[in-house]
Design a protein around this nucleic acid. Structure first.
Lengths: 117, 117
DNA sequence: CAACGATATGTTCGTTCGGATATAACGCTC
DNA sequence: GAGCGTTATATCCGAACGAACATATCGTTG
């Protein structure tokens, strides 16, 4: 079986030494949008709750306004949802990814040709 | 003074769990091309020789052929230089970066607008 | 008010990563 | 052959990272 090289653009935006926006946080936001809570989003990504929470904390503080609205309480009392800014962030990020990938398709194929099979 | 968010595309190519090609390795290759040795390339990047060597080792084994030609010996006896494959890799990588950046300029500006100043 | 489930936060521990250091082998110059 | 500078490699140690676990707190439901 040949190893299959995975190619992807990973865009990061840095403020000082902190990674404000990156692929991990975007994926987490999408999972929260799907599941409605940090807990189940983290579980669905195989990530600890603590790690998810720290990522969100970093993100929310790097933005003008939070990307996620969170409320405590169980039995439908609490949970988390994306804000408008959060949704815009995800959309922009994914759009950049696909735009970049299609603009560079040929070069990427040549790069893959350099790799061992 | 406002924090200046640094934006850049970071493309990585992965074979299995190993990062074969990434921004760090490309930067190192460029430094070797400039300086003619792993030692001075690492120093110019503020990187330990060990780290540089490990990066090159990983890279060379992930490619069909090595990206760097190395020879032992001092007093002009040894040193390292990029192979044709190495030079092609750097050129492709940088071209992809600039292509992607210019194709996504508008989206990136909108992304930056979401960040705290 | 009791139970449940979610956020919020601290602590502990193992793993990984990289820096620092040491050493060997080697090739050119003088 | 001595000296220098380079590649190549091993070992040790500290920092950073993330998982696991433990609580505390809160809001809704019944």
């Amino acid at each position: 079986m040949t190893r299959k090289p995975l190619v992807r653009f990973r865009m990061r935006i840095t403020t000082g030494d902190v990674i404000a926006i990156g692929p991990g946080k975007v994926e987490l936001l999408e999972a929260i949008d799907r599941t409605g809570s940090i807990t189940s989003a983290a579980a669905s990504l195989g990530m600890s709750y603590r790690r998810a929470w720290l990522l969100l904390d970093t993100l929310n503080r790097a933005l003008r306004g939070p990307a996620v609205d969170s409320a405590r309480g169980g039995d439908q009392g609490g949970g988390s949802a994306l804000t408008d800014a959060g949704r815009e962030l995800v959309a922009l990020y994914r759009h950049v990814e696909s735009t970049a990938a299609s603009a560079c398709r040929r070069d990427i194929e040549r790069l893959l040709g350099l790799l061992a099979r």
